[in-house]
Design a binder for these strands. Structure first.
Lengths: 251, 251
DNA sequence: TCACTTGTCTATTGAACTAGACAACTTACC
DNA sequence: GGTAAGTTGTCTAGTTCAATAGACAAGTGA
């Protein structure tokens, strides 16, 4: 019988790390291989039983690892057929009409936005300037995690005028969409005025929220949405998992 | 009763990572704090019960984390008194007479050398040149992990003339010291001829063997030891945990 | 002596991992 | 169309490890 032998000569020893579960080690191993291109997009992974044999572990352990890869959005599993690498990115087109749920739905996926936190705070100079307020004026701050087919795509901070949209969090939690939330305030249409794009890497916190490893690339997107009459409505600062999204700007 | 609540509001949630044990997260957290200097050398850590309360975990879990920190050589625990940060480094003086066990013993610690692997191989051009052999000549290669008070200090590869020292591995395993191993060959004295020092970072393999995190600094030390009559005896390539050792060269 | 610290013990619960079996599905081949 | 081989999905069962809970021993220091 195979048992965990800390100093033995088992063939899975090379990835046994104290305090880290086996399935996590195997998942990280495969993530690494996929990210460096040892498996192409659409390529089939070895069968679960073969992976199990290769690492010298039980098939259930491999299944747990593959489930993790699925949660990270790296693979898609088809019963009877196999597990396939999925490294194609969601095309996120940035234009005047930029709506997360519409982009995801158009790509044939299921959109989801979850409010992770909110508060009323005084506007910084930067935020006040964007929204046409005075520094220190109350603004509503929303922290939203967006996912496509349960895979986290971005985490975004959204600021709105605190007087006009003081119920924003409560409404968003119910309708689960910025567009529908704004409809409650009688705003049926709005457009993107500008978008600033930068890049950085995940820290431990972002990595957890986006289900990424640390030090993975992140697109930092700041934007301002305005009404048809050019009144500022909301401004955001989002972090997109660059492994899962490509921003497209047409000009 | 406190249970692991994946989406609850427990105060330990901020460090719960799927597939990584709690004690490991806490140990990594403290390592980070110690390395960044939030605790000075010799400073006492909070009591186990206080740490447990702070993270919202059981004291046993904290004890497991502290045991890990001890294994990494970051702290020393004294019964009845407390756990103290230990970030002072072993002074490893490089001179003509450089012997690991003597250095460690002189510092009041217990030296240990463990042979992790060995083989007979053809000498590379570099190694042959150092030992005064022809490329392709047989050399004995030893992989040795050295520790001070059970804390790994270095991993070293040592090459010797394969003809003259063909029993080197067997003897080393018994006497557990290069110096005593050479005595079996009638070599009672030898001296360091040259030492080359470089630096790099731990990869996953080195990190495991040295009980370090990945991307910690490593001193790369190559050297040649010769007999009193300048005959090459052995050459080494060692990797020292820079968090635990400082090399001292006097001139 | 007393308060506080680490060390050790027992017991319990849930997660991780192993083992084996079989169902459900896909694909290729006859 | 049917079959067989190969794949993922699900179930039961058992062992080991992680974490909790509580109690008490043993040591430190004022």
């Amino acid at each position: 019988m195979l048992t965990r032998t800390p100093r033995g000569s088992s063939n899975k020893n090379h990835l046994l790390v104290r305090g880290i579960t086996l399935w996590r080690c195997i998942a990280d191993d495969f993530e690494q291989m996929i990210l460096v291109g040892k498996y192409d997009n659409g390529e089939r992974l070895p069968a679960e039983s073969e992976i199990a044999a290769r690492y010298g572990v039980n098939r259930h352990t491999v299944r747990r690892a593959i489930a993790e890869l699925g949660a990270r959005g790296l693979v898609r599993t088809e019963r009877g057929s196999g597990t396939f690498v999925k490294t194609d990115k969601l095309d996120y087109r940035i234009g005047q009409r930029t709506r997360f749920s519409e982009i995801v739905a158009a790509a044939g996926h299921e959109a989801e936005g979850r409010l992770q936190g909110h508060r009323l705070e005084p506007a910084s100079e930067d935020i006040a300037g964007r929204l046409g307020l005075k520094p220190g004026d109350a603004v509503v701050r929303l922290e939203i995690v967006r996912a496509s087919d349960r895979v986290p795509i971005s985490i975004a901070t959204t600021w709105l005028d605190g007087q006009r949209f003081c119920e924003a969090a409560k409404i968003f939690r119910r309708v689960r969409s910025i567009t529908r939330m704004l409809e409650h305030y009688g705003i049926s249409t709005y457009r993107r005025k500008w978008t600033r794009i930068g890049a950085t890497f995940t820290d431990a916190v972002d990595a957890g929220r986006l289900r990424l490893s640390v030090h993975r690339p992140v697109l930092v997107v700041e934007s301002l949405d305005v009404s048809p009459t050019d009144e500022p409505i909301l401004t955001t600062r989002g972090r997109f998992a660059a492994d899962r999204v490509a921003l497209i700007v047409e000009s």
